[in-house]
Write a protein that binds this DNA or RNA. Sequence first.
DNA 1: GCCCGTTAAGTGATTAGATCACTTGATATG
DNA 2: CATATCAAGTGATCTAATCACTTAACGGGC
Lengths: 233, 233
Amino acid sequence: MSEVVRPTLSDALTERMLELIRAGGLRPGDRLPSTRELSQRFAVTTPTLREALRRLEATGAIEMRHGSGIYVGADIERVVLPNPNMREMDGEQLLELLGARVVIEPPLAAMAAQRAAGAELAALERVLDEAARHLRGEDAELHETNMTFHRATARLAGNSVLHEIVDSLLTVHGAEQRAILQLFDDRRRDYEEHRAILEAIVAGDAAAAEERMRAHLVDVRTVVEQRLHNPPK
Amino acid sequence: MSEVVRPTLSDALTERMLELIRAGGLRPGDRLPSTRELSQRFAVTTPTLREALRRLEATGAIEMRHGSGIYVGADIERVVLPNPNMREMDGEQLLELLGARVVIEPPLAAMAAQRAAGAELAALERVLDEAARHLRGEDAELHETNMTFHRATARLAGNSVLHEIVDSLLTVHGAEQRAILQLFDDRRRDYEEHRAILEAIVAGDAAAAEERMRAHLVDVRTVVEQRLHNPPK
DNA sequence: GCCCGTTAAGTGATTAGATCACTTGATATG
DNA sequence: CATATCAAGTGATCTAATCACTTAACGGGC
């Protein structure tokens, strides 16, 4: 299964160029040699070189300007090349992800309770009604609706940056979603805890909303942790 | 100055393909048509198509396996294509970003205080010593060192997901960094507040660390907000 | 003297078809 | 039944030329 992918020519090229930029002490904004010169220096043809350049461009390492030149990107220091042999998310990472949510989401629930208005609250209620209908349905659908509740709550907090962060945390790989489903499928409790959070938000009780969201996520995390160490048959 | 870069053919291709993958309901792991077929369908030649594919690969949207095929990446949903014409961050966004940091970083300071060990604390001290040397030096260097302090603190919290989030929040485009510098250049206060936070972390006082980090970030945010509404001449 | 259109050199973008290298599943072999 | 072989399909690379854009120098016109 976990075959090691052999690095291709342009793979190596990408790494070599990134290394040379850094080792060469080039600063953001500096101009690189032309494509013709680079392809000669690295002894590859233009298309191959350009594939490597496109990767560096996509990761923010460089910027290619038609007719002008190739320039070192602003955040060259932080560029990380995607590794094709990246392992799937393991249990430890899953716990860290849930730990991150424990930190971030409770304050958002509090903020939502403070500023949520009528129409927005109604939308949140609809999400839970939808979840109620799925209580005896498909696992996948229920899980999706549950995630929607967390997304919607984060949005109500009114900070788009935080909303995007939560959104990305909830958008996990399909395999991990299934892992969560298998590890934590206590549908009724999940639903009821969401209800309790919503009630606090509707009541405008920021402290209660925060605490209930925290308790809820800690619950989830605890169950996942237990199942990981003592997996069901 | 802010010229609009005309989208190139492969630029448009990259977006079109990403759109088609998503609109087509393709899931992670699904296989895409071959390069030959794709180049015909989009009426471009192989090298051009491959440049677009390499960008999608570098952003994690797809995975290319030699001899096998092209597959939809695990986090296709999260993929964001770098936009060369990205508009500069405006004041409102800057405040939201600082607001997000107010929520996330204080708990991390508390976590750092609870689990930080000797060597890690020494490294954090060195960062502040470095900052002290820059107190009368270049603005840019001081700012960079200050950001390093926040990064390092986030790392000490021991949750890699949260660390990455803070890291990305601090990695703002050069233009915005300058904006912050101009809006908030009270070097001494910044430094002293960092010192106070570090002391709490070293003492293992989680509550104090959290509260000082929060006060510090609220300070920064308040100053930025005031300058935005009442800019210095 | 200064402004602005023109121009030419340099650079990235794209084209075309052929060939090489690798994976995978079917087939044959023991 | 397991293993080895093979062929079809696919990505990777090569080749060399042309097109499109940017930039800065140049020169005429005011």
